[in-house]
Design a protein around this nucleic acid. Structure first.
Length: 345
DNA sequence: AAGACGGGGGT
DNA sequence: ACCCCAGTCTT
């Protein structure tokens, strides 16, 4: 049996029972693929259930408020996916008569749909011979063919895509694509792959050359930036607080947070920042005390946020205050969400 | 070509 | 501490 037949054979016997494998509805496949970008199945699964319940069709998603979409997305990360998801739902309804396009080339035009996702939808929903190349596929191909070209180099991206075209089962691209990804996730996994029981272990070049553990090769890591966030948790008359929306570039676009004072390093004397704080919270008189004395480090893949929450109490009226009892309606970063649950106002 | 973009899980 | 995850977009 050749590579593609063996992979599909393995898949049909070992595939997990996942909700998006029970449908060919392009809306649901699209939704699942966007959610699973850089995200494990276990983490994305509950979100898929929430979204399909709240938005059974693309029309339901299109007519939702963006903040509602972000609220449901809260905790999943990479929030541009949620904003693009909403944008594309409206795009499909307005410009495609509510029907997803059926080819790789057309799907690629949609915002938030790149090479991988266009291939996934085209193959799974429309049986187009469009190979997917995700992290799993890079790993399986690099090991099986013993290729050490870095998977995130321009040359590597091109080479592995060509290789995927060569090995794809042209008579069953839908199953082959899902099979090779599942195989990478479950069998040929990053650490401690099950080579001993692998159905391909007598033809795997990487295994033969004892190079499975070094493959795939990937170019350098991103350098981590350190930032110091001071959140001003205003409590006015024990019933109201202040939230601001993050706009512009950078992390957490469209999400809400307490008024933020970002500093170059940890604050040693809060009173030296009195004027900045006054301007941020728009108050004349208030008391301020740290909630956590040791900064909490919130780790993102590319930034470490040294975070301190400051409790700002006042008896004045707030300019644009929100009711504390409604604070959970706003989409917030998990860092803020955890604080809200822990502080419990 | 290189960065930016989240959060969680595994070793 | 480091790597990876059903990647895409921007610079």
């Amino acid at each position: 049996m050749n590579f593609s037949k063996e992979i599909i054979h393995w898949y049909l016997q070992n595939k997990r029972d996942l909700p998006w494998r029970k449908t060919k509805d392009p809306y649901r496949i699209w939704l699942s693929e966007i959610m699973l970008q850089q995200t494990r199945v276990a983490q994305g699964l509950p979100y898929y259930e929430k979204f399909t319940a709240a938005f059974p069709t693309v029309y339901d998603l299109a007519k939702a408020e963006e903040s509602q979409v972000l609220k449901l997305w809260q905790g999943l990360g990479y929030y541009s996916r949620a904003r693009n998801l909403h944008y594309t739902a409206k795009d499909i309804v307005e410009n495609y008569n509510g029907k997803f396009p059926s080819t790789y080339k057309e799907l690629l035009q949609l915002k938030g749909v790149g090479d991988y996702t266009a291939s996934a939808i085209a193959s799974i929903c429309f049986d187009e011979v469009a190979p997917v190349v995700d992290g799993n596929v890079y790993r399986v191909l690099a090991r099986y063919f013993d290729i050490d070209t870095p998977i995130n180099s321009t040359e590597g991206i091109k080479k592995f895509k060509e290789l995927a075209f060569e090995v794809i089962a042209e008579d069953d691209p839908a199953n082959f694509n899902q099979a090779i990804m599942e195989f990478g996730a479950v069998q040929c996994k990053p650490q401690n792959p099950y080579c001993i029981v692998c159905p391909l272990n007598n033809s795997c070049e990487g295994l033969k050359n004892q190079r499975v553990g070094m493959l795939p090769v990937k170019l350098k890591k991103t350098k981590i930036k350190h930032r110091w966030f001071n959140y001003l948790v205003v409590i006015a008359k024990e019933t109201e607080t202040l939230l601001e929306e993050r706009t512009g570039k950078g992390i957490w676009q469209g999400l809400y947070q307490f008024p933020l004072l970002e500093t170059k390093k940890a604050i040693t004397d809060i009173h030296s920042h009195q004027e900045e704080i006054k301007a941020l919270v728009q108050l004349r008189n208030f008391s301020i005390t740290p909630y956590n004395t040791e900064a909490k480090i919130h780790k993102l893949s590319h930034q470490h946020l040294h975070t301190t929450f400051w409790i700002v109490e006042t008896t004045e009226n707030l300019k644009n205050g929100i009711l504390l009892q409604e604070i959970r309606k706003y989409p917030v970063p998990i860092l803020i969400g955890n604080f809200i649950e822990e502080f419990n106002f």
